[in-house]
Design a binder for these strands. Structure first.
Lengths: 193, 193
DNA sequence: TAAATTAGACTGAGCATTCAACCGGTTTTT
DNA sequence: AAAAACCGGTTGAATGCTCAGTCTAATTTA
């Protein structure tokens, strides 16, 4: 792995675990074995590191989620949305650091003043919300999902799965064990009566 | 209002809007008109300010939520849980700053090393989760709510409402307009078939 | 040989916290 | 009644530390 990649990887971990402001360049240097100068050789400043991480995250998240929806076969829209939720949980597990980072306030605050950051964030969220909505529209067509604004359902479902993931990272309760029940409740909430 | 209260109030706003680390004492001093020395006369350090805020928040949140469940009359457990969700949204609106603060990572990180902080946080979360669970148990007794581990339903419902509130604070989408639909979905998800 | 990397000294800014002094009102002493 | 001591609250300058970012001169790598 190139030094630049090593820096990005260590920064992802540190920023997500400790926070952007709370991570110093000295610390990052120590964690990677790279000299401080090297870090500034590859990145123009600390914020630039963060934006690179966000770009990587965006590319990977969007690509993996789209591919999942593309390649997987679903009999109904309802099954598709259940699959999408499960895949979200799965991604949150395999890309733990990145999701942790997205759940921090920092990216959202930066997005308010930095259009590049904003663009990445929106791409990520839109990818999920649009994927959910596609599933819902499909389900409403094939009769497996109730009639209600697809956009609104998509947003609510997204806030739910995301809420559960977040809950787990704060681990006040054992939220990881809720997966099965969540899927069941989700099912009966969407299903046409 | 005493100077001390003014400091607490301004700190609540600043910590929630900008973050703990990102708010300097100089800034807090400017915002309140109090000299920096005055702040340290009333509080032993910056963290102490934070803990005072958390204590206030805990007292108010817990008291208001318990009182609501106590005084309000509900015909069924299902109605009670719907009321509890609505009240959560209501509280998140009237106590905007405090909820914003609770949604930051800082209190949860501090809780890992500071037992006082941990105690406050747990009291707040337990108050909500237990309130939800009481409603669910009632609903399961009166037949308005499906059979499933009450604890798990309570956690899922809590992560849902909390997810929606957080979603709103990040305002990537107009999550405030989802209230009606959320309640409807919530209803059909819990209801006995 | 050109690009990448190192160690580390340095700058300048920002920051939490400290501290000696001060103020206005109340009580105590003379 | 005048003077002195007292006290909670307040002030803002001073202190010492951390940190992002710069710079250099030397070394390694490809």
């Amino acid at each position: 792995m190139s030094k630049k990649d090593a820096i990005l990887q260590a920064a992802t971990r540190l920023f997500s675990e400790k926070g952007f402001k709370e991570t110093s360049i000295a610390e990052l240097s120590k964690a990677t074995g790279a000299a401080e100068g090297t870090i500034f050789y590859h990145f123009k400043n600390k914020e630039d590191i963060f934006l690179c991480i966000l770009e990587d995250t965006r590319n990977r998240v969007v690509e993996e989620f789209e591919r999942y929806l593309e390649e997987e076969k679903f009999d109904t829209g309802l099954e598709m949305i259940e699959g999408a939720c499960s895949f979200y949980f799965f991604l949150a597990g395999t890309m733990g650091d990145q999701f942790l980072l997205l759940h921090r306030r920092h990216p959202h605050e930066l997005a308010e003043v930095n259009p590049v950051c904003r663009e990445h964030l929106e791409a990520i969220y839109n990818s999920f919300v649009n994927g959910f909505e596609r599933a819902i529209l499909l389900g409403q067509k094939d009769g497996s999902i109730r009639k209600m604004s697809s956009k609104k359902i998509a947003l609510i479902i997204f806030s739910m799965v995301d809420g559960l993931v977040r809950f787990k990272t704060y681990n006040l309760y054992d939220a990881g064990a809720l997966h099965k029940e969540f899927m069941e409740l989700c099912h009966s909430m969407l299903q046409k009566k």
